[in-house]
Structures are given as C-alpha cells and as structure tokens.
Amino acid sequence: MSLVWTLIATFLYAEIVVVLLLVLPIASPYKWNRLFKSKFLAMLAQQAHLYFFLIMGVLILFLLDAIREMRKYSSHEAGGHEHLNVEMQHSMRLFRAQRNFYISGFAIFLVLVIRRLVTLISAQANLLAQSEASMKQAQSATAAARTLMAEKSTEKAKEATEDSTLTELNELRKKVQELTSDLNREKKDKEALKSQAESLNKEYDRLTDEYSKLQKKITISDSSSGKGGEKDD
C-alpha cells in the first residue's frame, strides 16, 4: 500500500473510532456540545466548511481514481500466450483498486455520518437545554400559581374571620343593648321601690306620730279620770 492510501486508511480508522465514540453512551450530549463549542474547535469551526469540502474533494478524487483502476484491470483479458506472473500482477492490481475503492468510499460515507452525528448531538443538546429551561419556567409558574392560591385562600380565611368577627361584634352589641335596657329597667324599678319605701317611711312616721299623740291623750284621760275618783272618795 502506498503512502497516500496508508494515510487514507488511517483516516478511515480514525473515522471509525470517532463514530464509535459518538454513538456509544460514553458522554452526554451536554459534554459533547461543550466539546464542540470549545475554543480550539470553535477556531476550526470557522473554516469547517472549507475543510469539509477539501477532504470530500480529495476523497472523491481518490475514489474516482480507484474506479478508473478497477475498470482498467477488470476489462483486461489475459491471453493464453501471457505469462502467469503478468496475470497475477493484473489480479493484484485489480484487488488493490477494489480495496482502494472501498477505503475511499467508506471514508466518504463516514465523513458524512460524522458531520450528521455532530449536527444531531448539538441539536439534541440544545433541545435538552430548552426543555430544562421550559421545565424550570413551568416549575416557577407552578410555584407562583401555588403562592397565589395560598394567598387567595389566606385572604378568604381572613375575610371569613373578619365576617365571623363582625357577626360576633354585632351579637355582642345586641347583648350589650339588651343588658343596658335590663339595667335601665332595673334602675327604674329600684327608683320606684325607693320612692315606695320613702312613702312608706313617711306613712310610718305619720302613723307613729298619731299613735304617740293618741297614747298621750289616753294617758291624759286616764290621769284625769283617776283624779276625779279620788275627789269623790
């Protein structure tokens, strides 16, 4: 194998390793995307299209050369007068042309596969980042909704408490008014009883005075009647 085809075969083996690394679950899409966006690869990405078309052009040229060699040696018909060594050389060159065709063809195919895998991994990483951001927004919106619901329930509880407090205050006011009216009634009854007691005391004093006056009269009349009897004796 010549030096050029050795380099192409080495490039093919490196492509196989890269494809296996990208396909196998060795690293997450975040890590691959971080690696793709690193400073070194970012510098290469500025001219990635140029490198891609350059590599594809070189590989296509070698693929066309391999096809030409295949057609050249496959169309050769060995005559009976030719030596066996010449026929073996033609067969060997045809085998090398076919080998080079497969090497260059698979190299071109894996270049396209690697480019597609890098694009898909970057898109997957972006989608995962967007989904995480959307999930965080949804969680924050849910938390805000729960906070609003809690505040509304708290306000409703406060309103219910205020309503119950107002009801209790109204009931207490009614009870205070009833007690005030009862107290006024009791005061009026007490004043009436007091006035009745005063009138009874006055009547009692009057009766006592009359009784004392009558008692004095009786005493005077008894004394006067006693003196008249003594005189008669």
Rank of each mutant, 00 (worst) to 15 (best):
R185T: 14
L63Y: 14
D189R: 01
K188Q: 04
M135P: 05
L128P: 01
M149G: 04
V58G: 03
S131K: 12
L54V: 03
H90Y: 02
E77F: 10
L169C: 13
Q124S: 04
F95M: 08
A145D: 12
R99I: 02
V113I: 11
A143W: 06
S181P: 00
E159H: 14
A125S: 09
M88E: 04
E69Y: 05
S134Y: 12
A138H: 15
L84I: 12
T142A: 15
A145R: 08
A157W: 12
N170K: 11
L84M: 09
T180H: 11
F62M: 12
K158M: 15
M92V: 05
E77S: 09
T142F: 08
E162I: 09
A141Y: 03
K136Y: 11
T165V: 13
H76S: 06
Q139G: 04
S134G: 07
D65I: 10
A143C: 11
A144C: 08
A143Q: 15
R115K: 10
F101G: 03
N126G: 13
F53R: 04
A133Q: 15
K136I: 14
A123M: 04
T165N: 14
H76G: 04
Q177K: 08
A144F: 06
E162D: 06
S104G: 03
R173L: 11
K156I: 14
S164E: 11
K136F: 14
I60Q: 07
A97K: 00
K175R: 12
L112C: 10
T180R: 11
R96I: 04
